[in-house]
Design a protein around this nucleic acid. Structure first.
Length: 283
DNA sequence: CTAGAGCCCTGGGCGC
DNA sequence: TGCGCCCAGGGCTCTA
């Protein structure tokens, strides 16, 4: 599920519950997610304050008063639920624990943050905050698509000479960090570029067009997530999943939404993942 | 170096 | 109701 906009929405939802707050107790219910969890993780996350809650690509980063940073990745099925926080004058009870509740943070004010991940492609790690940029998961990441380092010159340079399909290149987190299968499909549709086109064969003009399209698609999705948070704050529940309509993703057989296009959305498989696109207006 | 396949894991949906 | 198969929003590692 979670691509950059969903992770950002989760982060924003966690802010009022975690940032500046003391984690009173952390329970770690299994030794591993995708990889083994850090040694003594529960102890290292008990009686520590979260000084800042940040995001890098699809990672949520919790800086701690101990000088460490907790790195969280939601994988495919990772979800974060909040319970027990005060909403107005109403206090919600904690729901019964569920299957795949792997890590549970109990905050000083009674809020509970539960990390649930059925498929366990998610991960958590602890690292010294000052060494975060050198962490093996963070270091190889490409630039943030919403940041200044991501621009026309950069993208042109990284796509030059590549024989891999543009779809695969945009999914490569070493080139650009944060796009996933859904938003890559949406970006290519808006840009009118076939997912099958070789990355190195996308014209300079269209690479330049892609940069603001990528930013727009992500910003719009973050905005949609933000409005879902307003509803969410009225009640306890799960962060990060919000109603979102896609123009091509999962729209196989539907008419293309491009203005003036009478094509139909088709689905193909590229490096094991579905690509949805319109063969009529994406070339 | 590059590109593609395999693999990690669970659960939902569908055809029979 | 059960079984087998396909599919899923990610990404590291291995192979050629």
């Amino acid at each position: 599920m979670p691509e950059l906009p969903e992770v950002e929405t989760v982060r924003r939802g966690l802010l009022p519950v975690m940032e500046g707050k003391l984690i009173k107790l952390t329970a770690v219910n299994r030794p591993d997610l995708r990889w083994p969890l850090p040694d003594r993780m529960a102890e290292r996350l008990t009686d520590v304050r979260v000084t800042a809650l940040r995001r890098r690509s699809k990672y949520i980063l919790a800086d701690l008063s101990t000088g460490e940073t907790l790195i969280i990745h939601l994988g495919m099925s990772g979800r974060i639920l909040i319970s027990g926080h005060q909403v107005g004058d109403f206090h919600h009870d904690h729901p019964a624990p569920e299957k795949h509740d792997h890590v549970v943070f109990d905050m000083e004010d009674g809020a509970r943050v539960t990390f649930n991940d059925a498929r366990r492609f998610g991960h958590m790690d602890l690292t010294t905050t000052k060494d975060l940029e050198d962490h093996w998961l963070i270091k190889p990441l490409g630039p943030e698509p919403l940041g200044n380092a991501f621009n026309e010159d950069y993208l042109t340079d990284r796509l030059r000479g590549r024989n891999t399909p543009i779809k695969t290149a945009l999914l490569d987190q070493h080139i650009i960090a944060g796009l996933g299968n859904i938003y890559v499909c949406e970006v290519l549709h808006r840009a009118g570029i076939s997912p099958k086109r070789k990355a190195g064969q996308v014209s300079k003009t269209r690479v330049a067009q892609m940069v603001p399209i990528i930013r727009d698609v992500l910003r719009e999705a973050i905005q949609a997530g933000g409005s879902s948070l307003r509803d969410y704050r009225q009640t306890d529940g799960e962060l990060g999943y919000f109603q979102h309509t896609f123009r091509v993703y999962d729209q196989e057989g539907q008419p293309c939404k491009t203005h003036g296009c009478d094509g139909t959305i088709s689905r193909i498989v590229q490096s094991g993942r579905s690509s949805f696109y319109c063969a009529q207006c994406q070339r």
